[in-house]
Every structure is written in C-alpha cells, then in structure tokens.
Amino acid sequence: GSLMYASIFGNVSAIIQRLYSGTARYHTQMLRVREFIRFHQIPNPLRQRLEEYFQHAWSYTNGIDMNAVLKGFPECLQADICLHLNRSLLQHCKPFRGATKGCLRALAMKFKTTHAPPGDTLVHAGDLLTALYFISRGSIEILRGDVVVAILGKNDIFGEPLNLYARPGKSNGDVRALTYCDLHKIHRDDLLEVLDMYPEFSDHFWSSLEITFNLRDTNMIPGSPGSTELEGGFSRQRKRKLSFRRRTDKDTEQPGEVSALGPGRAGAGPSSRGRPGGPWGESPSSGPSSPESSEDEGPGRSSSPLRLVPFSSPRPPGEPPGGEPLMEDCEKSSDTCNPLSGAFSGVSNIFSFWGDSRGRQYQELPRCPAPTPSLLNIPLSSPGRRPRGDVESRLDALQRQLNRLETRLSADMATVLQLLQRQMTLVPPAYSAVTTPGPGPTSTSPLLPVSPLPTLTLDSLSQVSQFMACEELPPGAPELPQEGPTRRLSLPGQLGALTSQPLHRHGSDPGS
C-alpha cells in the first residue's frame, strides 16, 4: 500500500510541476520586462504597450523563439521550412505564380514574418522605404497627419515599386495596425538579389506586381527641396563636378596662354591676372594647382613670374625650331616645348642647366612650328573623362623618358669634360720664339709635331656638333674642335714665318 501511495504521489506532483513550468517561465520573463521598464524609466503609455505586446506574443508563440529554433537546422532544411511557412503567400499572390521551385525557395529564405499588435506603428512618415510588405492577416491604416487616407487588409501590398527607383524613397505617411496583424516583408536588397539570379522571372514579377498603396513621397523628385535634403551631399558634389568641367572646357578654348597655377587659371584673360583667384576666387580649394602655386600668395601677385606667355621676339635665322618633346602628345598638341628640351639645344645650356634650372624654367623657349593648343594648358582630366590607368601609364612613360634624357646628358657632359682635359694635357705650358741651342744640326726643328685630335665617332658628340652648327654659343662658352686643319689655341699665330727665318745662335768662333 505504501508503494502504491508513493507512486501516485510522485506522478501527481510531476504533472503539477509540468503544468506550472510554463507559468514560471512566463513570470520570469515578465519580471525581466518590468525590470527593464523600471531601469530605463519608460513612461506609462509606452510601458503599457510593452506589457501588452509581451503578453500577446507569449500567448501567440508560447514563449518560443522561432528564429532561434529555425537557425538550429541546416540551410537546406531551413529553405523547406521557410517554404512551408510562406506557402499561403507564395501560392495566392499573383506576382509569385509561375516561378520555379528554386526561385520560390530563394524568396522564402528572404521573407521575414512580423507580428504587430493593435496601435503599433510599422512605418513612420519620413522613414526610408527599405522593404516591401505583404499583409497575411489583420488590417492596417495609413495616416497623413491625423487623416486616415487608406485601410488595407489581407493580401494587400504596400511599399514602393523598387524597379522604378535606384534609391529608396521616404514614406509619405504613417502605417498603423488596427488589429493583430501578420506581415511578410522582404528587404529591398534581398528581393533585387533574387531577381538578379532569376532574370526570366524578374520581368514577370515586375509586370504582375500591383502595389495597393504606394508609400513613396511624390514630392521626392529631382530638383525638389525634399530631394535635395535626401541627396544633399551627392547633389552638391555633382554640381561641383559639372562646374569644374564647364570651366576646364572654357580653358581649352584659349591656347595662347600657358599658366603654371593649374587648370583653373589657364583660361583667365590678361585683365584677371591681378585678381586673387581668377574664376576660382569664390572657392580657392575647388581646383588643383601645381607646386608653384604656393608662391602666388606673396605680395606682387600681378607681377609674379609664374604666369607664362609666349615671347614675341624673333628667332635667329640659324636657330632650330626646338628640341624633341618629352611626351608623344607634344608633337601634336603643344605650341611651347618643355623646359628640359631647351637644355639640349647647345653645349652652353648643358654647362648651365643644373646651376640655374629654376631660373631657366621661365626663360624664352623655342617654339614648335605648329600653332596647336598648349601642352601645359590642357586641363586636368576628371576620373569620369580619362581612366586612372591611362594617366598612370603616361606618367610612367614620361618618367622613363626623363631617365633616358638624364643618362644621355650625363654621358655627353662626361665626354666633353674628358676631351677638354685631354686638350689641356697635350698642350705645353708655354712657348717662346727663341729656342735653346741643340747639340747638333738636327735641332733646327722649332717644335715637335703635334698629332691632331682623333675624329669623334660617338653619337652623342655628333649631336653636340649638330647643335653647335645651329645654335649661337654665348661669349663665355668653350669652343669644341671642328672639322678641318686643327691648330692649338695656345700656339702663336705666325708659326709659318718662324720656319722661314734663320735661327740666331749665340757662340764663340775658336779662330777669332
């Protein structure tokens, strides 16, 4: 009898404990919600809404976190579960008819179910419309201010047509639940991603989709105040780019002037030289400038040598048109050559190039014969006009050509200096018209024969001689050997007369 009593008592207590286990969990969670309300000092109306929603959600799901349970299964099984949970929507909604099984599984994985109690606001006026909503159960109302403009029910759709707008718009009203509602919502990016994977279904979906109420604000059109608020930074940046392009296009129409201050000032006329910023005076940081632009901040801005204009002085008759350009485009679109090309026009420029290279940067340069637009006047290309890779490749080509020119210049200078040193070592320090008596009659020769300089066969020296023939050397430049009979510069000019005159010897006659 005691054994029977113990078994009955144990079973009854276990049954009672299981009955009250759900209630215990409910009270535990309710205590957490109330502690949250007390800690954050939530006001009474919002506090009442929180408690009511918790009670309804507990009775609806029995305190089970559906998302946590669903995430515990593998992905393939999750797709089947989501397809079952959203079967009513996918079967009865017209846009989803005719979709393949794979497309429906992908869509079912992207849908999220939302449960809303009465009085809950789903979308506020001015919120971004980031999702498309399908009503599965219940009814909602749409308000503009305090005026109800629409009441939607089961199988209705609200949001915005995503295929017509590249960016999400703003809501033009509040969406509030009238009863307990079940909503299926899919985010904008998720829907577009699935439709991109199934393009054959995309056309059918957009053609058959009928949005019951379009929440997009109709005033959000390009150029409206609301649109400016939504895309303020983007609009200002776009206007700045367009104004920069218009100014650079105007600059290219004036090829007669070359400016070292950047493309923003290349198009300024002579009357605007004294102004601080020219056409860019209202925004000094709008356009890029070269490193020399920092010198323009000092006094005497109108007389600054940074602004270059072609000189009108005539060229000498024998002067060549100019050196070879550094870039391939210089032959086609440049009416002034790079300062480095002028360094190779003569030997005198070679000796004085490194010492006063900055001073020569603004000297007169030889002109190319074609009066085409200036290379320095070409505006900086924006990322939309020329690819970045093209600019980098041009810079690399320019750097390689500069290296080759520097190597060639160093070799030419070394060769010229070597020839000058050899000339100085071969010439005796001094010569006299009267020579010392020699031991015999073989001493009648006034000077030792001097062998002429070897013929220069280097390509670089031939180019130097060509430049010497075309360029007029300055007075202080050293002379180079030329073709024809060679003669030492330090010898007297009348050596031929010395050989014809008898030598005057000093000596005593033994017979006297």
Rank of each mutant, 00 (worst) to 15 (best):
L129C: 06
T130N: 12
Y133D: 02
Y133E: 01
Y133W: 14
I135G: 01
S136F: 04
R137L: 04
R137I: 04
G138M: 02
S139V: 07
I140C: 15
I140V: 10
L143S: 12
D146R: 07
V148P: 08
A150Y: 01
A150N: 01
I151M: 07
L152Y: 01
L152F: 01
G153L: 04
K154H: 08
K154C: 08
K154M: 08
N155T: 08
D156P: 01
I157V: 10
F158D: 01
E160K: 02
E160M: 01
E160L: 02
P161W: 03
L162W: 08
N163K: 08
N163T: 09
L164D: 10
L164Q: 09
L164C: 13
A166R: 10
R167H: 15
R167M: 04
R167Q: 13
P168D: 01
G169I: 01
S171M: 02
S171G: 02
S171Y: 01
N172S: 13
G173Y: 11
G173N: 11
D174H: 08
V175R: 02
V175C: 11
R176E: 01
A177N: 01
L178C: 08
L178G: 06
T179G: 08
T179R: 03
T179L: 02
T179Q: 05
Y180E: 09
C181P: 02
L183R: 02
L183T: 04
H184Y: 04
K185C: 13
R188L: 04
D189I: 07
D189G: 07
D189Q: 07
L191K: 01
L192E: 10
L192R: 08
E193W: 07
E193L: 06
E193D: 06
D196T: 13
M197N: 06
M197Y: 10
E200D: 10
D203R: 10
F205V: 03
S207P: 07
S207R: 09
S207A: 10
S207E: 04
S207K: 09
S207T: 12
S208D: 14
F213E: 03
N214R: 01
L215Q: 01
L215F: 02
R216P: 03
T218A: 12
T218E: 07
T218F: 11
T218R: 11
N219H: 08
M220T: 12
I221G: 12
G223V: 10
S224A: 11
P225M: 12
S227V: 09
T228C: 08
E231M: 10
E231D: 13
G232E: 12
F234Q: 11
F234D: 13
S235Q: 10
S235N: 09
K239M: 12
K239N: 15
R240A: 13
R240K: 10
R240I: 09
F244E: 14
R245N: 14
R245H: 10
R246I: 12
T248D: 07
K250A: 13
D251N: 08
T252H: 13
Q254E: 11
S259C: 10
S259Q: 11
L261W: 13
L261I: 08
L261V: 09
G262A: 12
P263C: 10
R265V: 11
R265N: 12
G267K: 10
A268W: 08
A268Y: 10
P270T: 11
P270W: 07
S271R: 04
S272N: 03
R273C: 13
P279H: 15
G281A: 11
G281E: 14
S283I: 08
S283V: 14
S283Y: 03
S283Q: 05
P284F: 13
G287L: 09
P288E: 11
P288Q: 12
S290H: 04
P291W: 13
P291D: 09
P291Q: 15
E295W: 09
E297D: 15
G298L: 05
G298D: 15
R301T: 06
S303V: 06
S303L: 11
S304V: 10
P305K: 12
R307D: 06
R307I: 07
L308V: 07
P314S: 08
P316V: 08
E319N: 14
P321I: 15
G323A: 11
E324C: 07
P325Y: 06
P325W: 11
P325V: 15
M327K: 04
E328M: 12
S333M: 09
S334Y: 10
S334E: 13
S334A: 04
D335V: 08
D335G: 09
D335I: 09
T336R: 09
C337H: 14
C337S: 09
C337E: 15
C337Y: 08
N338W: 08
P339V: 10
L340V: 09
S341F: 12
A343F: 04
A343Y: 09
A343R: 08
F344P: 08
S345F: 09
S345M: 08
S345H: 08
S345T: 13
V347R: 07
S348I: 03
N349P: 11
I350A: 06
I350E: 04
I350W: 06
F351R: 07
S352D: 05
S352M: 07
F353M: 05
F353A: 08
D356R: 06
D356S: 11
D356A: 13
D356H: 14
S357V: 09
G359N: 14
G359D: 07
G359S: 10
Y362K: 07
Y362N: 08
E364I: 08
R367W: 07
R367A: 13
A370C: 10
P371V: 10
T372K: 07
T372A: 12
P373Y: 09
L375Y: 14
L376R: 09
L376D: 09
I378M: 14
S381P: 12
P383G: 04
R385I: 05
P387L: 08
S393D: 04
S393C: 04
S393A: 13
L395H: 04
L395Y: 08
L395V: 04
L395A: 08
D396T: 09
A397C: 15
A397P: 06
A397N: 10
A397E: 05
Q399I: 03
L402W: 04
L402R: 03
N403S: 13
N403F: 15
R404Y: 01
R404I: 04
R404S: 04
R404H: 05
R404G: 08
T407P: 04
A411T: 04
D412G: 03
D412P: 03
D412H: 08
D412K: 15
M413N: 11
A414V: 11
A414F: 04
A414W: 05
A414T: 12
T415E: 04
T415S: 15
V416P: 04
V416Y: 05
V416R: 03
L417Y: 03
Q418R: 11
L419G: 08
L420E: 06
Q421P: 06
R422D: 04
R422K: 06
T425E: 07
L426R: 10
L426W: 15
L426C: 05
P428V: 06
P429I: 15
Y431V: 12
S432T: 11
S432M: 09
S432Q: 15
V434Q: 13
T435K: 13
T435F: 09
T436A: 12
P437L: 08
P439N: 05
P439Q: 09
P439G: 08
P439S: 13
P441A: 09
P441V: 11
T442K: 04
S443Q: 11
S443R: 10
T444A: 08
T444N: 12
P446D: 08
L448S: 08
P449W: 01
P449E: 12
P449C: 05
P452D: 12
P452T: 09
P454H: 07
T455P: 08
L456Y: 09
L458N: 04
L461G: 11
L461R: 10
S462E: 10
S462N: 11
S462M: 11
Q463C: 12
E471N: 06
E472R: 12
P474C: 12
P474E: 09
P474H: 06
G476N: 12
A477W: 05
E479L: 15
P481N: 14
Q482R: 08
L491E: 10
P492N: 08
G493Y: 11
G493S: 10
Q494P: 13
Q494N: 09
Q494A: 10
L495N: 08
G496P: 13
A497D: 14
A497W: 14
A497K: 13
T499F: 09
Q501K: 12
Q501L: 11
P502F: 11
P502G: 11
L503S: 10
H504D: 10
R505P: 09
H506M: 09
G507Y: 13
S508P: 09
D509S: 11
D509N: 13
D509V: 13
P510C: 04
